[in-house]
Simulated assay, not measured.
Amino acid sequence: MLVDADHLLASLIFEPDRCSINFHPLHSYVAIGFYTFFLFIPKLRVIAIGLLFHMLTDYQDCLWH
C-alpha cells in the first residue's frame, strides 16, 4: 500500500473521477515499466506482481469513469 503514498502529493488527495494511472508518480507509465522489469529479478518478483495487480485495479477505475 506504500505505492498509494503518492496520492498525498495531489492537490485533492482523493477525487473519485480522477484516473490514477499516469497522474501520480508511482502510477506513471515509467513506474509501471520499472515494475515490469522487476518481474525478471527473482527477489523482487512477488513485489512486482503485487504492484502490477495494483496498477491493473487502478486502471479498471479509469475505464468506469
Rank of each mutant, 00 (worst) to 15 (best):
M1T: 08
L2P: 00
V3F: 06
D4V: 11
A5G: 02
A5M: 13
H7K: 14
H7M: 14
L8E: 02
A10E: 01
A10M: 06
S11P: 00
L12E: 06
L12S: 09
I13W: 07
I13K: 13
F14H: 08
F14E: 03
E15C: 14
P16Y: 05
R18E: 02
R18M: 07
R18T: 01
C19A: 14
C19Q: 11
S20A: 11
S20P: 01
S20H: 06
I21M: 12
N22E: 03
F23R: 12
H24W: 08
H27N: 05
H27R: 02
H27Y: 07
Y29A: 14
V30A: 09
V30I: 15
V30N: 10
V30D: 01
A31H: 04
A31S: 06
I32H: 11
I32M: 15
G33P: 04
G33F: 04
G33C: 07
F34K: 14
F34D: 07
F34Q: 10
Y35F: 08
Y35R: 02
Y35H: 08
T36C: 12
T36G: 03
T36L: 14
T36K: 08
F37M: 13
F38T: 05
F38D: 00
L39F: 01
L39D: 01
I41E: 01
I41F: 11
I41H: 07
P42G: 15
P42L: 15
K43E: 03
K43P: 01
L44F: 11
R45Y: 02
V46E: 04
I47D: 03
A48N: 08
I49Y: 00
I49N: 03
I49R: 04
L51K: 10
L51A: 14
L52T: 08
F53T: 10
H54N: 02
H54G: 07
M55Q: 04
T57C: 06
T57S: 10
T57P: 00
T57H: 03
D58W: 02
D58V: 09
Y59M: 13
Q60M: 14
Q60A: 15
C62V: 09
C62S: 14
L63N: 10
L63A: 11
W64T: 15
W64Q: 15
W64I: 15
W64K: 15
H65A: 12
